[in-house]
Protein backbone atom coordinates (compact mmCIF):
# COMPACT_ATOMS: atom_id res chain seq x y z
CA UNK A 1 0.00 0.00 0.00
CA UNK A 2 2.70 2.46 1.02
CA UNK A 3 4.86 1.37 -1.93
CA UNK A 4 2.03 2.29 -4.26
CA UNK A 5 2.05 5.83 -2.95
CA UNK A 6 5.81 6.23 -3.05
CA UNK A 7 5.92 7.90 -6.53
CA UNK A 8 3.15 10.25 -5.41
CA UNK A 9 5.10 11.17 -2.29
CA UNK A 10 8.29 11.77 -4.27
CA UNK A 11 6.43 13.96 -6.75
CA UNK A 12 4.85 15.97 -3.95
CA UNK A 13 8.23 16.41 -2.22
CA UNK A 14 9.76 17.54 -5.50
CA UNK A 15 6.98 20.05 -6.14
CA UNK A 16 7.30 21.32 -2.58
CA UNK A 17 11.07 21.80 -3.02
CA UNK A 18 10.50 23.71 -6.26
CA UNK A 19 7.83 25.82 -4.59
CA UNK A 20 10.02 26.69 -1.62
CA UNK A 21 12.80 27.79 -3.97
CA UNK A 22 10.40 29.83 -6.05
CA UNK A 23 9.12 31.63 -2.95
CA UNK A 24 12.71 32.27 -1.85
CA UNK A 25 13.52 33.61 -5.31
CA UNK A 26 10.57 36.02 -5.19
CA UNK A 27 11.51 37.15 -1.67
CA UNK A 28 15.07 37.78 -2.89
CA UNK A 29 13.83 39.80 -5.86
CA UNK A 30 11.57 41.76 -3.52
CA UNK A 31 14.46 42.53 -1.17
CA UNK A 32 16.94 43.36 -3.94
CA UNK A 33 15.94 46.97 -4.75
CA UNK A 34 16.21 47.86 -1.05
CA UNK A 35 19.62 46.19 -0.89
CA UNK A 36 20.73 48.52 -3.69
CA UNK A 37 20.08 51.47 -1.38
CA UNK A 38 23.34 50.46 0.29
CA UNK A 39 25.59 49.81 -2.70
CA UNK A 40 28.65 49.49 -0.46
CA UNK A 41 27.52 46.06 0.76
CA UNK A 42 26.87 44.86 -2.82
CA UNK A 43 30.26 46.11 -4.01
CA UNK A 44 31.91 44.33 -1.06
CA UNK A 45 30.21 41.09 -2.13
CA UNK A 46 31.13 41.55 -5.81
CA UNK A 47 34.71 41.91 -4.65
CA UNK A 48 34.40 38.81 -2.47
CA UNK A 49 32.84 36.43 -5.01
CA UNK A 50 34.94 37.89 -7.81
CA UNK A 51 38.25 37.76 -6.00
CA UNK A 52 37.84 34.16 -4.85
CA UNK A 53 37.07 32.98 -8.41
CA UNK A 54 39.13 35.18 -10.72
CA UNK A 55 42.42 33.25 -10.72
CA UNK A 56 40.68 29.89 -11.08
CA UNK A 57 38.57 31.17 -13.94
CA UNK A 58 41.48 32.92 -15.69
CA UNK A 59 43.67 29.81 -15.57
CA UNK A 60 40.72 27.60 -16.53
CA UNK A 61 39.97 29.81 -19.53
CA UNK A 62 43.60 29.72 -20.67
CA UNK A 63 43.74 25.92 -20.62
CA UNK A 64 40.38 25.52 -22.34
CA UNK A 65 41.60 27.89 -25.09
CA UNK A 66 44.85 25.92 -25.48
CA UNK A 67 43.00 22.62 -25.80
CA UNK A 68 40.30 23.99 -28.10
CA UNK A 69 42.89 25.43 -30.48
CA UNK A 70 44.82 22.15 -30.59
CA UNK A 71 41.67 20.12 -31.31
CA UNK A 72 40.27 22.53 -33.88
CA UNK A 73 43.63 22.97 -35.57
CA UNK A 74 44.05 19.25 -36.25
CA UNK A 75 40.43 18.97 -37.46
CA UNK A 76 40.64 22.09 -39.65
CA UNK A 77 44.02 21.10 -41.09
CA UNK A 78 42.38 18.14 -42.80
CA UNK A 79 40.25 20.51 -44.85
CA UNK A 80 42.91 23.16 -45.23
CA UNK A 81 40.73 25.55 -43.26
CA UNK A 82 43.12 26.46 -40.43
CA UNK A 83 42.61 30.12 -41.26
CA UNK A 84 39.18 29.88 -39.54
CA UNK A 85 40.74 28.82 -36.23
CA UNK A 86 40.44 32.24 -34.53
CA UNK A 87 36.79 32.66 -35.42
CA UNK A 88 35.85 29.14 -34.46
CA UNK A 89 37.51 29.27 -31.04
CA UNK A 90 35.98 32.68 -30.30
CA UNK A 91 32.51 31.47 -31.26
CA UNK A 92 32.78 28.34 -29.12
CA UNK A 93 33.98 30.38 -26.15
CA UNK A 94 31.61 33.32 -26.38
CA UNK A 95 28.47 31.37 -27.16
CA UNK A 96 28.89 28.28 -25.06
CA UNK A 97 32.04 27.35 -23.20
CA UNK A 98 32.71 30.75 -21.64
CA UNK A 99 29.35 31.15 -19.90
CA UNK A 100 28.86 27.45 -19.04
CA UNK A 101 32.34 26.59 -17.77
CA UNK A 102 32.62 29.89 -15.88
CA UNK A 103 29.31 29.12 -14.20
CA UNK A 104 30.41 25.58 -13.31
CA UNK A 105 33.73 26.83 -11.88
CA UNK A 106 31.89 29.64 -10.10
CA UNK A 107 29.51 27.09 -8.54
CA UNK A 108 32.50 25.10 -7.31
CA UNK A 109 34.40 28.06 -5.89
CA UNK A 110 32.21 31.06 -5.04
CA UNK A 111 29.00 29.02 -4.73
CA UNK A 112 30.44 26.68 -2.14
CA UNK A 113 31.93 29.50 -0.12
CA UNK A 114 28.59 31.33 -0.15
CA UNK A 115 26.70 28.20 0.90
CA UNK A 116 29.14 27.36 3.69
CA UNK A 117 29.32 30.98 4.87
CA UNK A 118 25.54 31.22 5.15
CA UNK A 119 25.29 27.72 6.59
CA UNK A 120 27.78 28.65 9.27
CA UNK A 121 25.87 31.85 9.97
CA UNK A 122 22.75 29.71 10.42
CA UNK A 123 24.53 27.16 12.63
CA UNK A 124 26.09 29.82 14.90
CA UNK A 125 22.74 31.62 15.05
CA UNK A 126 24.01 34.78 13.40
CA UNK A 127 20.94 34.80 11.14
CA UNK A 128 18.64 34.47 14.17
CA UNK A 129 20.59 37.27 15.89
CA UNK A 130 20.00 39.51 12.91
CA UNK A 131 16.29 38.69 12.96
CA UNK A 132 15.89 39.57 16.62
CA UNK A 133 17.85 42.78 16.04
CA UNK A 134 15.05 43.65 13.61
CA UNK A 135 17.36 43.43 10.60
CA UNK A 136 15.86 41.50 7.69
CA UNK A 137 18.42 38.85 6.67
CA UNK A 138 16.89 38.66 3.18
CA UNK A 139 17.78 42.31 2.66
CA UNK A 140 21.06 42.36 4.55
CA UNK A 141 22.58 38.96 3.66
CA UNK A 142 20.77 37.29 0.78
CA UNK A 143 19.97 40.13 -1.63
CA UNK A 144 23.48 41.69 -1.75
CA UNK A 145 25.02 38.29 -2.51
CA UNK A 146 22.42 37.64 -5.19
CA UNK A 147 23.14 41.00 -6.85
CA UNK A 148 26.86 40.31 -6.61
CA UNK A 149 26.41 37.00 -8.43
CA UNK A 150 24.52 38.71 -11.25
CA UNK A 151 27.18 41.40 -11.62
CA UNK A 152 30.28 39.25 -11.30
CA UNK A 153 29.34 36.24 -13.46
CA UNK A 154 29.37 38.09 -16.84
CA UNK A 155 32.61 39.81 -15.85
CA UNK A 156 34.18 36.48 -14.99
CA UNK A 157 32.85 34.88 -18.19
CA UNK A 158 34.44 37.76 -20.10
CA UNK A 159 37.77 37.05 -18.42
CA UNK A 160 37.38 33.33 -19.16
CA UNK A 161 36.74 33.93 -22.87
CA UNK A 162 39.55 36.49 -23.16
CA UNK A 163 42.02 34.09 -21.57
CA UNK A 164 40.70 31.30 -23.81
CA UNK A 165 41.29 33.39 -26.93
CA UNK A 166 44.78 34.19 -25.65
CA UNK A 167 45.39 30.45 -25.23
CA UNK A 168 44.16 29.76 -28.76
CA UNK A 169 46.44 32.53 -30.05
CA UNK A 170 49.42 30.93 -28.33
CA UNK A 171 48.70 27.53 -29.88
CA UNK A 172 47.56 28.75 -33.31
CA UNK A 173 50.05 31.54 -33.94
CA UNK A 174 53.06 30.86 -31.71
CA UNK A 175 53.03 27.06 -31.84
CA UNK A 176 51.50 26.16 -35.21
CA UNK A 177 52.78 29.20 -37.05
CA UNK A 178 49.44 30.59 -38.21
CA UNK A 179 49.56 34.19 -39.45
CA UNK A 180 48.40 36.51 -36.60
CA UNK A 181 46.55 38.74 -39.05
CA UNK A 182 44.59 35.76 -40.36
CA UNK A 183 43.86 34.59 -36.81
CA UNK A 184 42.38 37.92 -35.68
CA UNK A 185 40.60 38.77 -38.92
CA UNK A 186 38.77 35.44 -38.98
CA UNK A 187 37.55 36.27 -35.49
CA UNK A 188 36.29 39.69 -36.62
CA UNK A 189 34.66 38.10 -39.61
CA UNK A 190 32.90 35.24 -37.78
CA UNK A 191 31.83 36.77 -34.48
CA UNK A 192 28.77 38.99 -34.33
CA UNK A 193 28.54 41.37 -31.41
CA UNK A 194 24.76 41.11 -31.12
CA UNK A 195 24.09 37.42 -31.57
CA UNK A 196 27.28 35.96 -30.10
CA UNK A 197 28.73 38.34 -27.53
CA UNK A 198 25.48 39.79 -26.15
CA UNK A 199 23.69 36.44 -26.07
CA UNK A 200 26.64 34.92 -24.24
CA UNK A 201 26.49 37.71 -21.70
CA UNK A 202 22.74 37.22 -21.24
CA UNK A 203 23.42 33.56 -20.52
CA UNK A 204 26.04 34.54 -17.96
CA UNK A 205 23.70 36.92 -16.17
CA UNK A 206 21.06 34.21 -15.91
CA UNK A 207 23.62 31.61 -14.77
CA UNK A 208 24.91 34.11 -12.20
CA UNK A 209 21.41 34.59 -10.80
CA UNK A 210 20.67 30.84 -10.75
CA UNK A 211 23.99 29.81 -9.27
CA UNK A 212 24.00 32.39 -6.49
CA UNK A 213 20.37 31.76 -5.68
CA UNK A 214 20.96 28.02 -5.28
CA UNK A 215 24.02 28.63 -3.10
CA UNK A 216 22.37 31.16 -0.79
CA UNK A 217 19.18 29.08 -0.57
CA UNK A 218 21.07 25.95 0.46
CA UNK A 219 23.24 27.87 2.95
CA UNK A 220 20.34 29.85 4.39
CA UNK A 221 18.30 26.68 4.94
CA UNK A 222 21.18 24.49 6.12
CA UNK A 223 20.52 22.35 9.18
CA UNK A 224 22.25 24.11 12.07
CA UNK A 225 25.11 21.64 12.57
CA UNK A 226 28.56 20.94 11.15
CA UNK A 227 27.08 18.07 9.14
CA UNK A 228 24.27 20.29 7.89
CA UNK A 229 26.70 22.92 6.62
CA UNK A 230 28.69 20.25 4.76
CA UNK A 231 25.58 18.82 3.16
CA UNK A 232 24.35 22.27 2.14
CA UNK A 233 27.69 22.99 0.48
CA UNK A 234 27.66 19.73 -1.47
CA UNK A 235 24.03 20.17 -2.46
CA UNK A 236 24.72 23.68 -3.70
CA UNK A 237 27.38 22.44 -6.17
CA UNK A 238 25.31 19.50 -7.37
CA UNK A 239 22.09 21.47 -7.85
CA UNK A 240 23.82 24.51 -9.41
CA UNK A 241 25.64 22.33 -11.93
CA UNK A 242 22.43 20.58 -12.99
CA UNK A 243 20.54 23.86 -13.16
CA UNK A 244 23.28 25.52 -15.25
CA UNK A 245 23.39 22.69 -17.78
CA UNK A 246 19.60 22.48 -18.02
CA UNK A 247 19.24 26.26 -18.35
CA UNK A 248 21.98 26.27 -20.99
CA UNK A 249 19.96 23.90 -23.15
CA UNK A 250 16.80 25.95 -22.74
CA UNK A 251 18.51 29.29 -23.41
CA UNK A 252 20.47 27.96 -26.39
CA UNK A 253 17.33 26.55 -27.97
CA UNK A 254 15.71 29.98 -27.77
CA UNK A 255 18.75 32.00 -28.83
CA UNK A 256 20.21 30.24 -31.84
Amino acid sequence: MTRLFEPVRITLDFLQAIGQRAVFFLATLWASPRALLRPGIVVEQVFFVGSVSVILIGVGGLFVGLVLALQFYTALARFGATSSLGGLVALALLRELGPVLTALLFAGRAGTSLASELGLMRATRQIDAMEVMAVDPMRRIVAPRFMAGIVSMPLLAGIFSAMGILGAYLVGVKMMGLDPGVFWSSMRHEVSFRSDFVDGMIKSVIFGAACTLVAVYEGFHARPSAEGVGQATTRSVVISSMVILALDFILTSFMY
Binding site: L120, M121, T124, R125, Q126, D128, A129, E131, V132, M133, A134, V135, R140
Partner: peptide
Protein backbone atom coordinates in the same frame (compact mmCIF):
# COMPACT_ATOMS: atom_id res chain seq x y z
CA UNK B 1 12.00 44.06 18.20
CA UNK B 2 14.01 47.27 18.21
CA UNK B 3 12.88 47.58 21.83
CA UNK B 4 14.16 44.10 22.61
CA UNK B 5 17.66 42.96 23.38
CA UNK B 6 18.51 39.29 23.10
CA UNK B 7 21.61 37.63 24.49
CA UNK B 8 22.19 34.34 22.71
CA UNK B 9 23.74 31.47 24.60
CA UNK B 10 26.27 31.11 21.76
CA UNK B 11 26.88 34.86 21.55
CA UNK B 12 26.00 34.72 17.83
CA UNK B 13 28.56 37.41 16.96
CA UNK B 14 29.09 38.13 13.26
CA UNK B 15 32.31 36.32 12.39
CA UNK B 16 33.27 38.67 9.56
CA UNK B 17 33.05 41.84 11.66
CA UNK B 18 35.36 43.11 14.41
CA UNK B 19 34.16 43.42 17.99
CA UNK B 20 33.62 47.14 17.46
CA UNK B 21 31.60 46.61 14.27
CA UNK B 22 29.56 43.87 15.91
CA UNK B 23 28.43 46.27 18.63
CA UNK B 24 27.96 49.07 16.09
CA UNK B 25 25.86 46.83 13.82
CA UNK B 26 22.37 47.66 15.20
CA UNK B 27 23.21 51.39 15.26
CA UNK B 28 24.42 51.36 11.66
CA UNK B 29 21.32 49.43 10.57
Amino acid sequence: RREMGFLFQEGALFGDLSVFENVAFPLRE
